[in-house]
């Protein structure tokens, strides 16, 4: 009874977080639209202006192009965040592993970049969609990458790859340098236990190569049905 209540509370909280993120992206996109139109208008106006020296015009053009690029960049981020937010309240749906990986890696690229760790993506084409909990899938990936980035030295590379073999999809996260110790997340909590718990909940496999192996790998096994 109490547990149910707490679960509902948790779900509500997650849902509200999702709504909040979605609201943020919405508002952001509206503002980006204004910037977009304003800079577009500037371009239009410049196009209509006759008595302007060529040099300044080129300079303006360049500036406007840069603004356009940045708008696209911010907008791309907002789009990823938006679909991520919308996915938070779905517990079971059909999704493509690759799509979710691309989206999530875009969102967390910065986390790795700050530690000077490169995320290398190597996804196999033609991976069929699977039915599972997409937000838990992203959660697991996030936890693993966080764990790896926390324990890897600057300059290392984490390769994220997906493969399909015999109807079984494997997502493999491997680090180019061997970890001397079991990756110790800064929270000496039960993060691995939580990972296993979530994996069990999703009915997927989560395996690690022993610490010190080169490359150190964490492999998710997702049955595709």
């Amino acid at each position: 009874m109490r547990m149910k209540l707490e679960n509902t509370l948790r779900d509500r909280q997650l849902a509200s977080v999702g709504k909040l993120l979605a609201g943020y992206t919405h508002e952001l996109k509206n503002h980006l639209a204004i910037i977009n139109e304003s800079s577009g208008l500037m371009a239009d106006l410049l196009g209509m202006t006759e008595s302007e020296d060529e040099q300044t015009r080129v300079r303006f053009k360049k500036i406007i192009n840069t603004i356009g690029e940045r708008i696209r960049e911010a907008n791309g981020m907002a789009n990823h965040l938006n679909s991520f937010a919308h996915r938070m309240d779905t517990s079971l749906s059909s999704f493509n592993v690759n799509d979710l990986l691309i989206e999530e890696l875009a969102l967390i690229d910065r986390v790795a970049r700050l530690k000077n760790i490169r995320l290398k993506v190597n996804l196999q084409d033609n991976i069929p969609p699977i039915t599972n909990n997409p937000s838990l899938f992203q959660f697991i990936i996030f936890m693993i990458i966080q764990e790896l980035t926390n324990s890897l030295a600057a300059g290392s590379v984490i390769e994220i790859s997906s493969h399909i073999n015999d109807q079984i999809i494997r997502v493999c996260l491997s680090s180019t340098e061997p970890l001397d110790t079991i990756p110790e997340s800064p929270e000496p909590d039960n993060s691995d236990e939580v990972l296993q718990f979530v994996a069990a909940k999703m009915n997927i496999g989560l395996n690690r190569t022993p610490p010190g192996s080169d490359p150190y790998q964490i492999i998710l096994t997702l049955p595709s049905t």
Binding site: L14, M77, L107, R110, V194
Partner: peptide, 21 residues
């Protein structure tokens, strides 16, 4: 723990995105 971790990871992710934007 899952929930707390999840919220935390969403928080971190959102923070990352906020910086990215």
């Amino acid at each position: 723990a899952e929930h707390t971790n999840k919220l935390a990871s969403i928080g971190r992710l959102a923070a990352g995105v906020a910086h990215e934007i």
